[in-house]
Structures are given as C-alpha cells and as structure tokens.
Amino acid sequence: MHPRLICLGMAGLVLAIAAACGSTRSTADDIASRPPPRTSASYVLAQGETVTLAPAVTLRLERVNDSRCKKGAVCVWAGYISYSFVLADKQGSTSFLLAEDMPGASKTATRNGLTFTLQGLEPAEPPALKAAVPDYRVSLRVNISQPI
C-alpha cells in the first residue's frame, strides 16, 4: 500500500474518532440543558371537553352538577357544585368526582399516579333563578405522583 494512502486513512480515522467524541459531548450537553420533565400542569376544561395528559392518557370533564341556590331564589340550603371526570389510559378508564363543599367529596383526588386538585370555576357565582345554564369552565391542577 502506498504511504500516502496510509496517512490519509489514519487522518480519516482520527477525524472520525474526533467527530464521534464531539457528537457524544454535544448529546450529553443537550441532555443536561433540557428542562426537567413536567411534574404538574394546570388545565381549564368545559363540560364534555377532553385533554391529553400524557401519551395514551386523557382526562374528560364528563359533567358539572350545580345544585347551588340560584340568585333570587329562596333556599333551605346553599347546595354545592361537583365535577365528574373520566381518566382513560391503556388499562381502561376510571371515574372520579371533585367538589369543594359537597359532603363526602373532596377537591383533591389521586388516580393512577396522578393527583387532581380543583383550582377554580367560571362563573364562580351561581346563575340567576331563570338564567340559562352557564358554560362552566373548571380549572384544575394535575400533579404526577408516580411515572405514568
């Protein structure tokens, strides 16, 4: 083999090794500079709306039940508002209820490694006695308590 070809071959090998080392370093730098995975997020849902929480994991606000005393009405109790959700993943689906003032319910629930906490409602006040049912918007925080 010709000496120049050996030198060119060696030079090519050195460049290939240097490129490989450089690409490994940039990959490590890229990984180090990435933000950490999200462990919580807030969502706003309307009745019937679905949001994707992770690949193959969805949350649907199935129903809003508002039994609060309407403005202008005379009531013997204040009533409450509750929210029925359906969490679906690869294993199937599970339903749960969130409410702030409802007896036997809580504003926080944990299902399948996720914790759901009510944050707010729009409109916050009950509708007037003869008003149409409002277009409710429920805000909630979802925290990951274990990998999905």
Rank of each mutant, 00 (worst) to 15 (best):
Q91Y: 10
S42W: 04
Q91L: 13
A41V: 00
V74K: 12
T27M: 12
R63G: 03
P37R: 01
K71F: 09
D89E: 11
S42P: 03
G79D: 03
T24A: 15
N65E: 13
T50R: 06
L53T: 00
S82D: 05
G22Y: 15
A73S: 15
T27H: 13
A32R: 13
A54N: 06
P37G: 01
I31L: 07
D30I: 07
A78P: 07
V76L: 12
A73V: 09
T50I: 04
P35T: 02
R63I: 05
D30M: 11
L53C: 03
S23Y: 14
K71H: 10
D89Y: 07
L87T: 01
I31A: 10
P37I: 01
Q47W: 04
Y83A: 05
T24Y: 12
P55W: 11
C69P: 08
V44G: 11
A41G: 07
V74N: 13
K71D: 14
L45F: 04
C75L: 04
R25A: 14
T94W: 07
S23G: 06
Q91S: 15
C75V: 06
S95G: 13
L61Y: 03
A46W: 08
T52H: 09
L53S: 01
S40C: 00
W77A: 11
A41F: 01
C75I: 05
L61K: 03
G48A: 05
T94D: 12
E62G: 09
R68P: 02
S93T: 08
L87Y: 10
Q91A: 15
C69T: 05
D66N: 09
Y80E: 12
P35A: 07
S95Q: 13
T50K: 04
T24L: 14
A88V: 10
P37F: 00
L53H: 02
Y83C: 02
G72S: 09
C75A: 10
V86F: 02
V74F: 11
R68V: 05
S67W: 05
L87V: 02
I81R: 01
K70D: 03
S23N: 13
V57F: 06
I31Y: 07
V57Q: 09
L53D: 02
T58R: 09
L61W: 02
L59C: 08
A54M: 06
L45S: 06
S23D: 11
S23H: 13
T52V: 12
N65L: 12
S33G: 03
K70C: 03
P35M: 06
D89Q: 04
T24W: 14
L59I: 06
S23P: 05
R38H: 07
R34S: 02
V64R: 07
A54F: 01
S42T: 11
